[in-house]
């Protein structure tokens, strides 16, 4: 697979299918694994890092489940490629920096990705569309078992999987669910919801994971505790919480439609109108307006376009995607023009 092949491909997690996909964009599970005794990436020298990378690449090559994957060593990618992978959620922002002995393994469907030498030797992630953590777990669990046959993982009977940061020790698992909660934001209840989430020792983050802001009413909810509970217990806990948030968002949507219907309709239609007609648009404005259009689709107010296309627009209007589509470097102003063009094209064609 060539990285540019991904440009015309819609990632599995953007398909807008799966349970509760009107509110839940995607479900993701990641596992942190390390090789026993080898220094963790931040503490290893060039050779040690290379040895780890070689061992993992070799193991990946032997695993049937990972037959359809491609390994990209980050030293071989330019900064645009790296940003492109971050925008597609195939690797973390941090992985794109200081690229010595780092790699990312990606499957054609963009369901599985495996980062080598990020914070831990292995960061394996599986993404699914909609509210589907258990399906993601079933897939990742099998791949993890295969990897464990080929590699000696750092593991202790009492602490579990040993990770560079003690916040990941134990299962090494983080389950995350990406939620779209525009109605809770509009009626001003989101703060209470976020407060409740943090009190239950879960965290919320923005669209691009740790350290990113919540824009476009997107919130990523994940577990904070990874030791002392089994993987399925942790997933059940997240699921319980997510079900409640979905319920609250649905109630908020009903409230909006029964009490402020014309205001909501106005806001949604104006957003759609701007997107269909603008000739210059920033990334932030795009995210905010698309968020309203997405709500409009869920409420049945917009029928000309499906949520899968909107999901995709969120990604392909990001800076690196625009530049890859145009096949040249674009300044921020040029990007705003190109972005508006792509959006007009997509929305008016439907």
């Amino acid at each position: 697979m060539n990285l540019n092949d991904l440009l015309n491909h819609r990632s599995e997690w953007l398909k807008g299918t799966g349970p509760h996909s009107d509110i839940v964009i995607s479900s993701r599970i990641r596992l942190a694994r390390n090789l026993a005794s080898a220094p963790f990436p931040h503490w290893s020298n060039k050779k040690q890092g290379r040895d780890v990378l070689d061992a993992i690449e070799q193991a990946v090559g032997k695993i049937n489940y990972l037959k359809g994957t491609t390994i990209f060593e980050l030293a071989d990618l330019d900064s645009l490629d790296k940003q492109f992978l971050v925008e597609r959620h195939l690797m973390s922002y941090g992985h794109a920096h200081k690229t010595n002995s780092k790699a990312v393994v990606i499957d054609n469907e963009e369901i599985v990705s495996l980062m080598v030498n990020e914070e831990d030797h292995i960061r394996l992630q599986v993404m699914q569309s909609g509210f589907n953590l258990f399906e993601a777990w079933n897939i990742i669990n099998r791949i993890d078992d295969c990897l464990a046959k080929e590699l000696s993982f750092a593991f202790s009977l009492d602490y579990g999987y040993l990770t560079a940061c003690p916040t990941n020790t134990g299962t090494g698992m983080r389950g995350s669910v990406m939620l779209h909660l525009p109605a809770l934001v509009i009626i001003g209840q989101i703060k209470q919801v976020l407060n409740a989430i943090s009190k239950l020792s879960f965290t919320t983050r923005g669209l691009y994971g740790e350290g990113t802001e919540a824009t476009g009413n997107f919130f990523q909810v994940s577990n904070q505790v990874s030791l002392g509970h089994s993987e399925t217990e942790i997933i059940e806990n997240i699921n319980g919480l997510i079900r409640q948030i979905i319920e609250q968002e649905n109630q908020a949507r009903e409230t909006l439609m029964s009490k402020n219907k014309s205001v909501v309709e106005d806001k949604i239609s104006r957003s759609f109108g701007i997107l269909k007609n603008a000739h210059i648009i920033s990334s932030q404005e795009t995210t905010e307006l698309l968020s309203m259009v997405r709500l409009g689709i869920s409420l049945g107010l917009i029928k000309e376009i499906d949520s899968s296309s909107v999901n995709e627009l969120f990604i392909i209007t990001q800076p690196a995607h625009l530049q890859k589509l145009e096949n040249k470097k674009l300044s921020s102003q040029e990007r705003d023009v190109k972005r508006a063009e792509i959006i007009r094209d997509k929305l008016n064609k439907q």
Partner: peptide
């Protein structure tokens, strides 16, 4: 951090 020091999850197959 976790409220526990006892792993309750899966183990590598070999172990």
């Amino acid at each position: 951090i976790h409220g526990s020091t006892a792993h309750a999850g899966k183990m590598p197959v070999k172990i």
